Computed example of a mutant assay.
Amino acid sequence: MPEIDQAVLISIITGVFSGGVFTFLQFLIKRHDDRTNNVDAKNKLVEDALLAILHDKIYVTGSRIIAQGTISAEDASNLDKLYEPYKQLGGNGTCERIMKKIEELPLKVED
């Protein structure tokens, strides 16, 4: 084979091979990005679900306590533990208003 034909053949093989390698690398990167995006979407759904559960628990428990007119130290501690992560997750003002009303309630003294 003449030298010029060998050089052309080597260039073609090198081009095809390197193109294939880069295509494969792009495929792997895209697959990784797709998986990461899917995990991010699932994490957002879990965060939203947790926020909804915390909101419901604070709303139901807080409404019951407000209706009673007093709060026990145990209930106050429990609500604080629910409200802090709710607030950090970006909860709205509904539970904040409930917590402010609860803070005004007298502490129930256990016999």
Rank of each mutant, 00 (worst) to 15 (best):
E3N: 13
E3S: 06
I4R: 14
I4W: 12
A7T: 12
V8I: 15
L9F: 09
L9Q: 14
I10V: 12
I10C: 05
S11D: 14
S11H: 12
I13H: 02
I13K: 14
I13Y: 07
T14S: 10
T14W: 06
T14I: 02
V16R: 06
F17H: 09
F17V: 15
G20K: 03
G20R: 08
V21T: 08
V21P: 06
F22V: 10
T23S: 10
F24C: 04
L25N: 09
L25A: 09
Q26H: 08
Q26E: 12
Q26A: 09
F27W: 11
L28W: 05
L28I: 11
L28Q: 14
I29S: 03
K30D: 12
H32S: 12
H32Y: 14
H32E: 10
D33I: 12
D34W: 09
R35P: 02
R35M: 08
R35F: 05
R35W: 07
R35C: 01
T36I: 11
T36C: 02
T36G: 00
T36R: 15
N37Q: 15
V39N: 05
V39M: 05
D40W: 02
K42R: 15
N43L: 15
K44A: 13
K44G: 03
K44P: 08
L45G: 00
L45K: 13
L45E: 14
V46W: 07
V46K: 11
E47C: 05
E47S: 14
E47G: 02
D48G: 08
D48A: 07
A49Q: 13
L51A: 04
I53H: 09
L54T: 09
L54K: 09
H55D: 11
H55I: 04
D56H: 14
D56E: 14
K57S: 06
I58Q: 00
Y59M: 07
G62R: 00
S63L: 04
S63H: 10
S63F: 06
I66C: 03
I66D: 05
G69Y: 02
T70I: 04
T70D: 06
T70F: 08
S72W: 00
S72M: 04
S72A: 01
A73G: 01
D75K: 08
D75N: 14
S77Q: 10
S77E: 13
S77T: 10
N78G: 01
L79H: 03
D80P: 01
D80T: 11
Y83K: 11
E84H: 10
E84G: 00
E84W: 07
P85R: 08
P85C: 04
Y86L: 03
K87I: 02
K87A: 05
K87M: 05
Q88E: 13
L89S: 10
L89H: 08
G90W: 07
G90E: 08
G93H: 08
T94L: 07
T94R: 14
C95V: 11
E96C: 01
E96W: 00
E96A: 12
R97P: 00
R97S: 05
R97Y: 11
R97H: 11
I98T: 12
M99Y: 04
M99R: 07
M99W: 06
K100S: 06
K100Q: 13
K100Y: 08
K101H: 11
K101F: 03
K101W: 07
I102G: 00
I102F: 02
I102D: 01
E103I: 03
E103A: 10
E103G: 02
P106M: 03
L107W: 05
K108I: 00
K108L: 08
V109K: 13
E110T: 15
E110I: 14
